[in-house]
Simulated scan of single mutants.
Amino acid sequence: MNALGHAHPKLIEALTEQANKVWHVSNLYQVEGQTALAEKLINLTFADTVFFANSGAEALEASIKMARKYHAVSGHPERYELITFEGAFHGRTLATIAAGGQEKYLEGFGPATPGFVQVPLNDLAAVKAAISENTAGFLIEPIQGEGGICEATKDFMRQLRALADEHGLLLVLDEVQCGVGRTGHLYAYQDMGIEPDIMASAKGIGGGFPLGACLATAEAAKGMTPGTHGSTYGGNPLAVAVGGAVIDEVSKPEFLEHVRRVSGRLSQGLSMLADEYPDVIEAVRGRGLMLGLKCVKPNTELQKAFMDKGLLTVAAGDNVVRLLPPLIISEDEAMDAVARIEAVCAELSTKSTAGKEEVSAS
């Protein structure tokens, strides 16, 4: 979320300037900052239109509603189901936990909201088999964050786009975690040779300030006429002022090149550790500065050990530890992180333990 770190001067400037003007304007009226940020996003992406929200879950709710409404106004109200993918995480509302389909998030909340069909990630045959007369489209994270930094392959994404076109369906992307420069591209889809119809963006887009956005083509959004959706605080002047400053910084070619360069060094260093300590780290996953360590030992054990070394990480599914540093991280800071991870690996490795035991015995 803190894509530009803490107290970035450009964000402070944008927030302070807006705070001295107006904090809130009803969305019944045109909000100048919304228009400015929407135009930036439209110019930088596939989108023709943008709806602002406060969070990723809200951006996904708008995306889901938009996909259903599109088919309803196109004369096919029976098309309300989205095909989603095992391991996904789309939020914590009733609709988004149903979309994710993970039992640990569904438990205790009664019957799951209907309208979602889960299939395995990167399994094109399963996707084709799941398409029915009720299918509205596909909802997918290009890189699953909570699921364990599991990537949809470029070929799979292209096949989904082709299937959507063939069957008159919508391709809906969840780039809440992997968007806004995280992969070394402004949005992950831009390195996959496809364009979505609808996309949810949040987290990094606000640089730590609550902000979400649902981006869409004019065709996909044609059913979302005034009154069909809304938000009291979505796109409030403070949030869009900060969001505009974030996009100005992150969209710079040299900024994205920096992310890719640092990522290259970080990934290389981590891969070397996986080779050296295969009993601790099984593999390194991800792209850009959205990386994951597939652990041999319990990921919570590594997460705690990393924290003891002053390194904050996030546990994820499939026994993965996520590394999601601010995008402004330097190469030296990345190498410092590798050194701290190496120290933990050395402490946890059975190879190191065996060596200590041999020294003690002698």
Rank of each mutant, 00 (worst) to 15 (best):
M224E: 01
Y29H: 13
E103H: 15
T96W: 15
A98K: 06
A98S: 11
C214M: 13
G207N: 11
A200S: 07
P77S: 03
A67W: 00
R161N: 05
L171G: 01
G227D: 04
K351E: 02
E276L: 13
Y187E: 03
A305H: 08
A216D: 05
V338P: 01
Q18R: 15
F51W: 11
A53N: 06
V314K: 12
A334G: 14
V180Y: 15
V117G: 02
H229I: 10
C214A: 09
N134L: 12
A7P: 13
T93H: 09
D336E: 10
M272W: 14
G269A: 07
A188W: 14
R92T: 07
N134V: 06
L4A: 02
G110Y: 15
T228W: 15
P196G: 10
L4R: 05
E81Y: 15
S330I: 07
T93G: 06
A283C: 10
K252R: 14
Y80C: 02
Y105T: 00
E257D: 13
E249L: 11
A125Q: 12
L348E: 10
H229M: 12
G204I: 10
A305Y: 10
N43S: 09
T232P: 15
E333P: 11
L28Q: 07
R340D: 00
A3R: 12
N43R: 12
L94V: 04
T35S: 08
T350D: 05
G110R: 15
A98D: 01
Y80Q: 07
H90C: 08
Y80V: 01
N20I: 13
L289V: 09
A98H: 09
A305I: 02
H71Y: 14
G108A: 02
I64D: 01
A274V: 09
I83C: 07
H8F: 12
N27D: 03
K128A: 03
N319S: 06
P210F: 09
S362P: 10
V320P: 08
G206T: 05
M157V: 00
G184M: 02
A337Y: 14
P114E: 03
P278Q: 03
A67R: 00
V172L: 05
M224S: 01
L60I: 13
L171T: 03
E282I: 14
F156R: 09
M66E: 01
F109P: 01
T353L: 13
P237D: 06
V338T: 08
A130F: 15
P278N: 08
A245V: 13
Y70D: 00
T84A: 07
P142S: 04
E331H: 07
E13M: 08
E151F: 14
L324K: 04
P142N: 06
L270I: 02
A188N: 08
R158L: 04
G223T: 01
P9E: 04
T93W: 14
Y187L: 08
D191F: 15
M157F: 11
E301A: 02
V296W: 13
K40T: 05
L348A: 04
A188Q: 10
A220G: 06
S55W: 14
G269N: 09
E166L: 09
